[in-house]
Every structure is written in structure tokens, then in C-alpha cells.
Amino acid sequence: MSGTARRALPALGMVPFLGYLTIFLFIPTIVIIVGAFEDHGHASLANVEALGTAPVLHALRQSLVVSASTAVVGAVLGGLLAYAVVTGRPDGMLRRAVTSVCGVLAQFGGVMLAFAFIATVSFSGSLTTLLKDTVGVDISGAWLFDVPGIILVYTYFQIPLMVIVFLPALDGLRVQWREAAENLGASTWQFWRHVGGPLLLPAFLGSTLLLFANAFASYATAAALVSQGNPIIPLFIRAALTSEILLGRQNLAYALSLEMVVVVAIVMGLYALLVRRTSRWLR
């Protein structure tokens, strides 16, 4: 075997991965781009221009509100939970239990999650009935089937996801750094203000951006909750494909998808930069 063949042999391991990316990422992206600039088989800017209309802009704002609010709440609460876990024993029962539960809950979504909240806090949900009968508080309402409900349900899986992605950064903080700061007379606040905080900030912001992208692209849970109206972009795409009102506007769904691709690409680009900065001190 020649030297060139030996050097190229390790690269063959990338072939299945590149094939996966081609089928499930590159080709769909090309189809979306072509479809966004096409209408009834002809090149057109009508679908892209429709992104500036009031209904689409409203759905985009609502999607950004849902994604940003759930990302911030999930990052703060998930970060605190991850810190509580990392202060315990690395091989302790608490850490194993929390990480296992978070791994399950971070993937618990779609119709099952929507049904769980409907069965709990809807008009005749178990918690709604309990609070009404015991303390006279009625928490039922249409809010569960609109943007506030989407925010509540999305936060449910954002918190455990934050624990999973932020825990390695907390593990990367070395005990020697804390001891060195204490030996120099630094208080706990001064350590987190000048050492721990600046080190963890890129990882925290990167994790928050990851939560934002996760919420922005989520569809199944919101689709199960909201049966009427299009408060967020994924549901607007569904309406463009299936609605009897938006007839002949299937290519609008491509334009909306392209808009989502651009937003997620920007967010993930920033995430990659922050992860690269974090990796410098995690080595």
C-alpha cells in the first residue's frame, strides 16, 4: 500500500458521516433554498417578499420571544441545578440520579409532553381540579393553548438540557484555582467575580444559545397544544403546507424554513465561537 493510500485510509471513516450529512442536511437545505425562490415552477421573489408581511413578522416575533424566554429561564435554573450537582461527590447517587433523569426529560417532548400538561393544568386537569377544590384557586384558561403555555411547556425540557450541556464546564473548574484564590485572600464572591464567572461565562452563553436554537426549531409539542392559529413560525409552516386558506402557497413554507435556517445558523455560529473559547481552558 502506497503512502498516499495509507494517509487517505483514516479519512474513509468520515464517509458514513458525510453521507448522513448529505442526505439529511445538505440536500434538504438545497431543496429549501430552491423552493423559496420558486413559485408555480418559475423563479420568483414573492415567497421571500411575503416574509415581510404582518402575519409572518408577528409569528417570527412570537418565536423569538418563546425561544429567548425559555432559553434564559432554562439556562438560569438549569445552571443552578448543575452547580448543585457538581458540588456533590462525582460518583455519588445524587449526581447519577439527576443526570439520568435530565437525560430522559430533555428528550421527553412532542405529543406526550403536551398531553401531560393538558392532563395536569388544563380546564379539567388534575392539578387544576385539586387547587380549585382545596384552596379555591382556578388556574385554568386558554393560556395553556397559546404562547404562555408554549413557554411553560418548552421550559420543562430546557432545564434538564441545560444541566446536560453545562455540567462539563462546571466539572472543568479545578479545585486548585479555588484554593489558590483563597490562599491569596479572595472571598467566595471575589472568586466567582474574577475567576469562576469569567471562565464559565462563554460556556453559559453558549449553552443558552443552544437552548434558544432548540426551542426555535421545536414543532411537535406546540403543534399538539395549538390547534388553531399560527403563533410561532413552525406552526405557520404547517399552515402553509396544509391549510385550506393558504391554497397554492406551499412555496411560502420553503421561504419560512429558509428564514429559520438563517436564524439557527447565526445562533449556532455564535455557539461554536463560544465553545471554542471555552475549550481553551477545559483541556
Results as ranks from 00 to 15, higher is better:
Ser2Tyr: 08
Thr4Met: 14
Thr4Asn: 14
Leu9Thr: 08
Pro10Val: 10
Gly13Pro: 09
Met14Ala: 15
Met14His: 11
Tyr20Glu: 06
Leu21Arg: 06
Thr22Lys: 12
Phe24Lys: 14
Ile27Trp: 10
Thr29Gly: 01
Ile33Leu: 07
Ile33Thr: 09
Val34Thr: 15
Val34Arg: 14
Ala36Arg: 01
Asp39Met: 13
Gly41Arg: 04
His42Val: 12
Ala43Ile: 14
Ser44Gly: 07
Ser44Gln: 06
Ala46Gly: 11
Gly52Ile: 01
Gly52Leu: 00
Leu60His: 09
Leu60Asn: 09
Ser63Val: 00
Leu64Phe: 03
Val66Gln: 04
Ser67Trp: 01
Ser67Pro: 02
Ala75Ile: 02
Ala75Ser: 03
Ala82Gln: 10
Tyr83Thr: 14
Ala84Thr: 13
Thr87Gly: 12
Thr87Glu: 14
Gly88Thr: 15
Gly88Ala: 12
Asp91Ala: 11
Asp91Val: 06
Asp91Phe: 08
Met93Pro: 14
Leu94Trp: 12
Ala97Asp: 09
Ser100Met: 08
Cys102Thr: 10
Val104Cys: 09
Ala106Cys: 13
Gln107Ser: 14
Gln107Gly: 15
Phe108Arg: 07
Val111Asp: 13
Met112Cys: 11
Ala114Glu: 00
Ala114Cys: 01
Thr120Pro: 05
Val121Phe: 01
Ser122Gly: 09
Ser124Glu: 14
Gly125Glu: 05
Leu127Val: 07
Leu127Glu: 14
Thr129Ile: 15
Leu130Glu: 13
Val135Gln: 15
Gly136Asn: 05
Gly136Gln: 04
Val137Gly: 13
Ser140Val: 10
Gly141Val: 04
Trp143Tyr: 08
Leu144Met: 05
Val153Lys: 07
Tyr156Lys: 10
Phe157Trp: 02
Gln158Asn: 13
Ile159His: 04
Met162Glu: 07
Val163Met: 00
Pro168Ser: 03
Leu170Gly: 11
Asp171Pro: 06
Arg174Gln: 11
Arg178Leu: 11
Glu179Gly: 04
Ala181Tyr: 03
Glu182Leu: 15
Ser187Met: 06
Thr188Ile: 15
Thr188Asn: 09
His194Leu: 12
Val195Ala: 01
Leu199Thr: 05
Leu199Ser: 08
Leu200Asp: 02
Leu201Phe: 09
Phe204Ile: 00
Gly206Cys: 00
Ser207Lys: 00
Leu209Lys: 00
Leu211Pro: 02
Ala213Phe: 01
Asn214Lys: 15
Ala215Asp: 02
Ser218Ala: 14
Tyr219Met: 07
Val226Asp: 00
Val226Leu: 00
Val226Asn: 00
Asn230Val: 07
Pro231Leu: 00
Ile232Ala: 02
Ile233Arg: 07
Ile233Gly: 04
Leu235Asp: 03
Leu235Val: 02
Leu235Ser: 02
Ala239Trp: 09
Leu241Thr: 05
Leu241Ile: 08
Leu247Arg: 15
Asn251Arg: 05
Tyr254Val: 04
Leu256His: 05
Ser257Leu: 03
Met260Gly: 07
Val261Thr: 06
Val261Leu: 04
Val262Phe: 05
Ala265Tyr: 10
Met268Cys: 12
Met268Asn: 12
Leu270Lys: 05
Tyr271Asp: 10
Val275Gly: 11
Ser279Thr: 15
